[in-house]
Amino acid sequence: QLNAMAHQIQEMFPQVPYHLVLQDLQLTRSVEITTDNILEGRIQVP
Rank of each mutant, 00 (worst) to 15 (best):
Q23F: 11
N3G: 09
L39K: 13
A6C: 00
V31T: 06
R42M: 07
N3D: 09
Q8H: 09
Q26S: 09
Y18K: 07
N3Y: 14
L20W: 08
N37E: 01
E11T: 12
Q44K: 11
T34Y: 02
Q8Y: 13
E11D: 10
F13M: 03
M5N: 05
V31D: 05
P14V: 03
L39E: 06
V21F: 03
D36R: 15
P46A: 12
A4M: 12
F13E: 00
V16D: 03
A6N: 01
H7P: 02
P46V: 11
R42F: 07
L25D: 03
H19T: 09
Q1P: 09
L22E: 05
I38L: 07
M5I: 09
Q15A: 10
I43D: 01
P46Y: 11
H19N: 10
M5H: 05
D24W: 05
H7Y: 12
R42L: 08
G41F: 05
Q8F: 13
I38R: 00
E32D: 09
N3A: 15
P17Q: 05
L27M: 13
N37S: 04
V21P: 00
T34I: 03
M5G: 03
P17I: 04
V21I: 15
V45R: 08
I43W: 06
N3Q: 14
Y18W: 13
D36M: 15
T28R: 00
L2M: 10
L25G: 01
P46D: 11
H19G: 08
R29F: 15
D24Y: 04
H19A: 07
R42C: 09
S30R: 05
H7G: 09
F13D: 00
F13N: 03
P14M: 05
D36A: 14
V31C: 09
H7K: 15
V16A: 05
V31A: 08
M12C: 09
Q10L: 11
T34P: 00
A4Y: 13
L25V: 05
A6R: 02
I43S: 01
L22H: 05
L2W: 11
N3R: 13
M12L: 11
S30M: 03
S30E: 04
I33P: 00
A4E: 13
L22F: 10
Q26H: 10
S30C: 06
Q8I: 13
Q23N: 09
I38D: 00
H7S: 12
L39R: 14
Q15T: 12
R29W: 15
L27F: 10
N3L: 15
Q23L: 12
E40M: 14
E40D: 08
I33F: 07
I33A: 14
R42A: 06
M12F: 08
P14R: 04
E40C: 10
H7R: 14
T34S: 04
L22C: 06
F13R: 01
E11F: 11
Q23K: 12
L2G: 03
P14S: 04
V16Y: 09
H19M: 09
P14Y: 03
P46R: 07
A4D: 09
L2R: 02
I9T: 01
I43N: 03
R29M: 15
N3C: 13
P17F: 05
Q15E: 12
E32C: 08
H19E: 13
Q10I: 13
I33T: 08
A6L: 09
N37R: 10
Q44F: 14
L39Y: 06
Q44N: 10
L25K: 00
T34N: 00
L2A: 04
I9A: 02
E32T: 10
V16R: 00
Q23D: 06
E40L: 12
M5W: 15
L20Y: 07
Q15L: 08
L2V: 08
Q1W: 15
I43H: 03
I43M: 08
Y18Q: 05
R42S: 05
Q1K: 13
E11I: 14
L22D: 02
H7I: 13
V16E: 02
P46H: 08
P14W: 04
Q26T: 11
Q8T: 13
L22I: 11
Q44I: 13
L20V: 09
Q1I: 14
S30F: 03
Q23V: 06
T35F: 07
M5V: 07
H19L: 10
D24K: 00
M5L: 12
M5E: 06
H19K: 08
H7N: 12
Q1M: 15
V21M: 04
I38P: 00
I43F: 09
L27A: 11
L25I: 06
M12E: 07
P46Q: 10
I38C: 04
M12G: 04
Q26G: 08
G41Q: 06
D24H: 03
Q15D: 13
A4F: 12
Q26D: 08
V21Q: 00
A4S: 09
P17E: 06
Q1G: 12
Q26P: 00
L20M: 10
L39N: 08
N37F: 03
L20S: 06
Q15F: 14
F13W: 06
L25F: 02
T35V: 15
